[in-house]
Design a protein around this nucleic acid. Structure first.
Lengths: 338, 338
DNA sequence: CTGAAAGCGCTTACAG
DNA sequence: CTGAAAGCGCTTACAG
């Protein structure tokens, strides 16, 4: 591989000068600059950022550890993060934890060893030792979407509680009383928030959440399927199933379809997270939309602040209800669709 | 940050010995190993892989440049790649080209400067200079899904031609004669292959592909919407629209729905790439499925071979038709569903 | 089995 | 404006 030494040699200058040109240092003569650029071009020189990083102690890279790349919510988040990071001059390395604490650990450790400048994590739960270590360590960390209570880390997330209250109102107004929920892991903050808000929403209508109407899922499709099957096997199945993310809603759809039942006639379905497909499912799905891309962008800016040494602020953005037809109502022609 | 020197000091040994222990070198006494491990643990030492990489000239990382993270096909591919790479001891850094040659360039350059051990690329077209440079350079490269003819790079892809012929047969048998296609960029190999195979399939039935029934898309949703709108504006709209990837099918669905038309009664729809949502759209979508995850795994193994210095072989896996209801037929209850 | 030392490819005070 | 030299944190022949 051609190195800076080769460039210096063919340019007839020292490596110091070559380095200055390549890094846009002002103290270089135009002549030197030209010769360096010409040599760089001629040799097809690619700077070795590994060496540069070792020397400068910054990698120009941030890490992003998400729970599940197959989840369109996280995909959209990741895309927004990469876009904003690129604007700010950072590359991003994505680690997919697949909702597994051991994988989260693996990726956080790898990213830390790689000396990324900062870390964005959507922590599965508080049980990944490396995540805890990262949160306490010197590398700047920002939590996005999920967070770990009790840590001193800025968090950028959305608050779904208001929207969930709206959802329960909506369901109640449609006459539904047997409301079931498929939760995420209750060790996750989003998992807990959604079931708590749902319970609170029911309470506001004088209803209580029946124990058998709580299905414990893990935010992945298969768990949504299993929980829904259990609901349907109940002597008194629920009127509505609220799947607290889009993949579990997909699983619920699978389970309902497999029994030859129809949504919403036999059982209604609501979801959390809006994705383009929800407009085209049979029927279109009522869901709660997060400002996903915005979360990603804000999180990157917060992390960049931290890296720059400024204090970073936490941000909470609101989610909102998007009414479609999966809970039984007539389609109000794009009511809350933005 | 605590470095190897600190560990050596508290262990009362040289950095050489510490390094040997950390790298599993056999020539270390049990006592030394123990003291090193204890010191490592006590100090919370994290090896600096940047320094290690500079020294060893390998990063234990492979790069993956895909065309669009928001496309579930590529997401699934990326996931399989990461999984297989992890098994083989590699990390993977994903670059999202978003179907833009300039972004592909940006990511390939960044990955090369980062000195990744090997590169997996799904090239947008032959117009990214960096991709061409990478293909010709010393870093091992494998193309996956798409490739660039005329380069000397192994390619792992699926062949959709047989399945497209099956699709045309299927459509013809259902009585459809006005067949339209939304292509990907014809600069991509997959874009070309799909339209060529479609045309050949029509020819086999004595039909020709009418020029106005060819919509040029870019594999993203918006282009599918626009192409479909143009089809529907035609004095003689087609009977069937074949969207050659899943996102353009989503766009087509949007366009059809926006006019209050129904699939398949008003216009039939077929797609390329199978994704879980296709079973739940209204109606479920007939499509062509690729062995996506397998492509990813095979590609990683081919790249690992190349990195190890062995020759890598190209692989072509077959795609197959999955018949659902979007073209008008009765649902044969999961006919070709695996 | 162990350690001293060279060197990976850069950047950056320091001196001129 | 330019260059010689030190040093980033590791690994690895080489010698003992």
């Amino acid at each position: 591989m051609v190195g800076i030494k080769d460039v210096a040699e063919t340019a007839g200058l020292s490596v110091a000068t070559v380095s200055r040109v390549l890094n846009g240092h002002p103290s270089v003569s135009d002549g030197a600059r030209e010769r360096v650029l010409a040599a760089t071009e001629a040799l097809g020189y690619r700077p070795n950022v590994v060496a540069r990083s070792l020397r400068t102690d910054r990698t120009g890279t941030i890490g992003l550890v998400i729970s599940d790349v197959l989840n369109p919510y996280f995909t959209e988040l990741a895309r927004a993060v990469e876009e904003e990071a690129r604007t700010l001059g950072y590359s991003v390395i994505i680690g997919n934890a697949d909702e597994r604490a051991d994988l989260e650990d693996h990726h956080v450790r790898g990213l830390l060893e790689r000396r990324i400048d900062g870390l964005l994590i959507s922590p599965a739960d508080g049980r990944s030792p490396m995540t805890l270590e990262a949160a306490a360590g010197p590398t700047p960390v920002v939590f996005v979407d999920r967070w770990i209570p009790g840590t001193d880390v800025p968090v950028v997330r959305s608050d779904g509680r208001g929207a969930i209250a709206d959802l329960v109102d909506h369901l109640h107004a449609l006459g539904h009383r047997g409301l079931a929920i498929i939760t995420g892991p209750t060790a996750t903050t989003t998992g807990r928030e959604r079931v708590d808000a749902f319970r609170a929403g029911l309470a506001a209508h004088g209803l209580t959440l029946r124990e058998e109407y709580v299905g414990r899922g893990d935010f992945q499709a298969e768990s949504g399927r299993r929980a829904t099957e259990r609901f349907l096997d109940l002597p008194e199945p629920p009127d509505v199933v609220f799947a607290t993310d889009n993949l579990m809603a997909l699983g619920a759809l699978d389970a309902i379809g497999a029994r030859g039942l129809r949504v919403p006639d036999d059982v209604a379905l609501a979801a959390f997270d809006d994705i383009p497909w929800f407009s085209h499912t049979d029927p279109p799905i009522t869901t709660i939309a997060q400002p996903t891309a915005e979360l990603g962008r804000v999180a990157v800016r917060a992390l960049a602040d931290l890296i720059a040494g400024s204090p970073a602020t936490s941000t909470v953005l609101p989610a909102h209800l998007v009414v479609r037809r999966s809970c039984g109502e007539p389609d109000p022609e794009g009511a809350t669709r933005e």
